[in-house]
Design a protein around this nucleic acid. Structure first.
Lengths: 241, 241
DNA sequence: GTGCGTGCGCGAACACCGTTCACCAGCACA
DNA sequence: TGTGCTGGTGAACGGTGTTCGCGCACGCAC
């Protein structure tokens, strides 16, 4: 059996190697520098061999996407360990800053994962590890009651069904990871706030990565910081730095 | 001379035709369906002939991008004609809704122009026609004093230089189109507000186009409307519908 | 009217791409 | 000892961007 294991392990190893090589090519030569033949060349094998591991080029890219998400999630959680457990506002800041820093450092990965229509994950929307980090921090904020939640009456009526579903799937996801968030700590207004939070964070980061601000910004990090501070104040996060 | 003109005109015609065909392919077959050979095929010529008009494939794509921007701008201005001149808040709403509607209807164009790193316009940032529409409406809002502008003291200090430069280039751009916006109507806080406005609008639209909301949204238009209404209230736009 | 220059399109070619297929070496296992 | 599976190869197909030399037709000068 150990031989079979060794065989399996080698297969897993070259599989992982394929995806890391693909990612290296992505950062060094851009989206269209990643090519089955280039990957194979870099690994000392031929292109058709890759079809033993993936159904197609697109299939490989999809797996690379989930790898990227996992790495981003790992980086964010690593950044979280530097923040004391009880400092939930600090955790929010850490995650936001970590996301921006990663995006700026890896623009190709960012645009592949976060700015490609209908790519990445399918619509059934099992939340990717990256989203999970975010939502876990949000759950901690909710559990600590450190959020000024808008009243349910202020949530547009036609959105409540969607938000309710979002809430239940989030609660279920958290339950799977051992976090118990009772529903009374998670009003619809909180889900609405999380949505709007993500809109602004994403917009800020994407615009910086794509250079699409209406004017050149010489200190984008400061702009980002002011945005996060304003955002934290707006959602009533009790911010102690 | 008329003969030379005719010749020139035919050249201009096929040039325009090339870009139109490219855009048709973009919407019908996606980003990687647009191909020099496919364009040529559709036009009844061969691929190398296209090199009489563009230096390279990327060059063509760049020109297609500016075409798209111009079309978007034209669509937005057309939508503006339905709004009375004195209803500046209505014009803001019209432009925002028009932008979202266009993006949702043309996801491929949107992601090509607004979500490609280092593509589109070069960094010297002569504002594209699309941005110009936006900024013209903003100028009207400023001129009508219908904006609650944050005090300059509330603008993060290190951003003021960038914002000041943004303001002067915007004033100059407007002057070129015959609009005179005196500087005393354009405080730095207004520039800051415009920046944040764009961040939220872009984030909302991009997330919808890319399907990157944390949960499936069954009524994205309503979500968008609530965002715009909230945004208008926040910037103190005197909104009459 | 004849010649000429120039601009535009063509066909062939090159290198590269994703993908398929037949084939083969090596290994586990009966 | 043979057998079947796994992972790799090389050739091939149709597609891509790009280059190059050829040729045709047209506008213009003599």
């Amino acid at each position: 059996m150990t031989q079979a294991e060794r065989r399996d392990r080698s297969r897993v190893d070259t599989d992982r190697s394929i995806r890391t090589v693909a990612r290296t090519l992505l950062v060094s030569r851009g989206r269209q520098g990643v090519t089955l033949r280039a990957i194979a060349r870099e690994m000392g094998i031929t292109a058709p061999a890759l079809y033993r591991y993936y159904d197609s080029f697109e299939d490989l890219i999809r797996h690379v996407c989930t790898d990227i998400c996992a790495d981003l999630a790992a980086e964010l959680t690593a950044g979280l360990t530097a923040v004391p457990d009880e400092d939930t506002p600090g955790q929010v800041f850490a995650v936001c800053r970590g996301f921006r820093a990663w995006a700026v450092r890896h623009p190709q990965e960012f645009s592949l994962v976060f700015a490609t229509p209908a790519a990445g994950l399918p619509a059934d929307c099992a939340p990717d590890p990256f989203g999970q980090v975010f939502l876990t921090v949000a759950a901690r904020v909710l559990a600590a009651r450190q959020l000024a939640v808008p009243a349910e009456a202020d949530v547009p009526e036609q959105l409540r069904a969607d938000l309710a579903e979002f809430r239940t799937t989030l609660i279920n996801t958290l339950a799977e990871t051992g976090i118990d968030l009772p529903e009374h700590l998670f009003p619809l207004g909180a889900a609405y706030t999380m949505l709007r939070f993500w809109v602004r964070l994403y917009g800020q980061v994407a615009l910086e990565v794509f250079g699409r601000f209406p004017a050149p910004v010489s200190a984008p990090e400061l702009l980002f910081e002011s945005m996060v501070a304003e955002l934290a104040a707006e959602i009533g996060l009790t911010a102690r730095r």
